[in-house]
């Protein structure tokens, strides 16, 4: 019975994911074609006006724009299902290859940002919650508010110009070094963008921590533990933080999923060759295959991260575990 139920929910969840991804595919396909211009005019600009009809036809067939839309759509989707994400006509690189390079970069950036966000956000939230309405709460709340309110592009721009112009320090002016090649340079290049993103993430994490800690603290078992004389520090780390973990994990999962496609601005300002920039460039150049496949990859990653968050949620939530 239980097994059947479990099986049922897995199938349901799976179907739901497939339907969602198909919807994303349809949506991105239509939207790209609704944006004015195509790859011919994106490449040639106004010079495209000088093309003869035969030249235009030759270009349309070169870029595959001469086929009916349905053929284009299912042709692309069919290829994607067999693992062929298409080719960038700009660099002759396969989109799969491009993604293999850009996705890990964004994932690394997202992980570093989340870590920084947690490192800043969790202690700050606990500090705030330890004594509500006190000066230390005010400090925590102010930092949180700043994180929520300072736009990433502003912080990024300000940091970059100050560091480069005043101190001449600009690791991002060098060619991007993947972590597999040069760990030290890679970390220097990732430091500023991760800080900018992490600072933004720290705010919701800080607030979630604060609320969760306050909530948990008022619960019976904590009161009991306190009455029993469990030391305050141990109480915090073991009991309170342990129980506040659930909302924090949920929040972190949400933020991680968001970062996969949401780091575009920061990637651009710091010249980080991540997946957001890959989509951006694709949109600018009207490289339909690149944008479609990359957006789909981001959507898959997003859906998987959500699934993982749910699973993790089940694993760590004592209430779910108990039942």
């Amino acid at each position: 019975m239980v097994r059947q139920l479990l099986h049922h929910s897995v199938v349901r969840r799976g179907t739901q994911m497939v339907v969602t991804l198909f919807g994303v595919a349809v949506f991105v396909f239509i939207m790209l074609r609704a944006i004015p211009g195509n790859q011919i005019t994106a490449g040639l600009g106004t010079e495209a006006a000088a093309l003869t009809p035969a030249q235009r036809a030759a270009l349309e067939s070169y870029y595959g724009l001469d086929k009916p839309l349905l053929t284009q759509f299912f042709g692309w989707l069919g290829n994607v299902c067999t693992g062929n994400l298409g080719v960038s006509s700009r660099s002759q690189q396969s989109v799969l290859d491009m993604t293999m390079h850009s996705l890990p970069v964004t994932i690394e950036l997202a992980i570093l940002s989340i870590v920084l966000g947690l490192v800043i956000g969790v202690p700050l939230g606990m500090l705030s919650a330890s004594k509500p309405e006190s000066p230390r709460d005010a400090i925590g709340q102010t930092v949180g508010l700043a994180g929520l309110s300072i736009p990433a592009f502003l912080l990024a721009t300000a940091l970059l110009s100050v560091l480069a112009q005043v101190w001449g320090y600009n690791p991002n002016g060098r060619v991007f070094a993947p972590i597999t090649q040069d760990v030290l340079l890679n970390l220097q290049q990732m430091m500023l963008p991760a800080f900018v993103l992490g600072f933004g993430i720290a705010a919701p994490i800080m607030r979630t921590t604060r609320t969760a800690v306050l909530d948990v603290r008022s619960e019976d078992f904590v009161r009991t533990a306190r009455a029993k004389g469990v030391p305050v520090r141990r109480l915090y780390v073991r009991h309170i933080l342990g129980n506040a973990l659930v909302p924090i994990v949920t929040m972190t999962g949400l933020q991680f999923g968001y970062l996969l496609g949401g780091a575009v601005v920061v990637e651009q300002v710091f010249s980080i060759p991540g997946i957001g920039r890959q989509v951006l460039l694709g949109i600018q150049q009207k490289e339909y295959a690149v944008v479609q496949s990359t957006v789909l990859v981001i959507a898959v990653a997003f859906v998987l991260v959500n699934l993982l968050t749910d699973v993790l949620y089940r694993v760590i939530d004592p209430r779910v575990r108990a039942s």
């Binding site: 480069a164 112009q165 001449g168 600009n170 991002n172 002016g173 010249s271 920039r277």
Partner: peptide, 21 residues
């Protein structure tokens, strides 16, 4: 000769000033 892509013009200025470019 290396043509280094730095998408943001003001980041190119920063790179010139720091001697990377």
């Amino acid at each position: 000769i290396e043509f280094r892509v730095i998408p943001d013009e003001s980041s190119i200025v920063s790179a010139l000033q720091s001697g990377n470019v």
